[in-house]
Design a binder for these strands. Structure first.
Length: 127
DNA sequence: AGTATGACTCATT
DNA sequence: AAATGAGCCATAC
């Protein structure tokens, strides 16, 4: 029984490689706690994790979140304007919007309607 | 090993 | 108000 060493793990989205994915895992952890029907932003998550200016890394974490378990509802993370900036990275360009609508969030023109009302801030709600 | 590039956001022009 | 620069730091090449 030998363990395979994969030289090109880049396509493998799973986190259990011997790398420092702690930040990503923290991000995923927060995202998993977003209630259905609510959304949050990259910046809010970054801020909650104490790395206020690492919103970009949150987006990166989402990019790496496809296929990991437990499932990460990446569709509930949008940019600070409530726009579905990550929709292009889903399996299909419309999947993100479809998922959100299915959860009761209205999306119009790649933007979340009533964004301020469905906005879920981990800094407040997840104290 | 150095450069480029982002699912971002904020401050400065 | 729109454009630009900077900070962030893991990946890709």
């Amino acid at each position: 029984m030998q363990i395979k060493k994969n030289k090109t793990p880049s396509k493998i989205p799973v986190a259990d490689r011997s790398k420092n994915y702690t930040f990503f895992e923290n991000v995923w952890d927060v995202v998993r706690q977003i209630p259905e029907g609510r959304v949050t932003t990259y910046g809010a998550i970054a801020n909650y994790l104490g790395t206020k200016s690492s919103a970009r890394m949150v987006g990166y974490a989402m990019n790496s979140s496809f296929g990991i378990m437990p499932k990460v509802p990446a569709q509930r993370v949008v940019n600070r304007n409530g726009m579905l900036s990550g929709k292009a990275h889903f399996a299909t360009p419309t999947l993100m919007e479809e998922l959100l609508k299915k959860e009761g969030i209205q999306v119009e023109d790649d933007k979340i309607v009533n964004f301020t009302k469905v906005f879920w801030d981990p800094n407040i709600e997840l104290l």
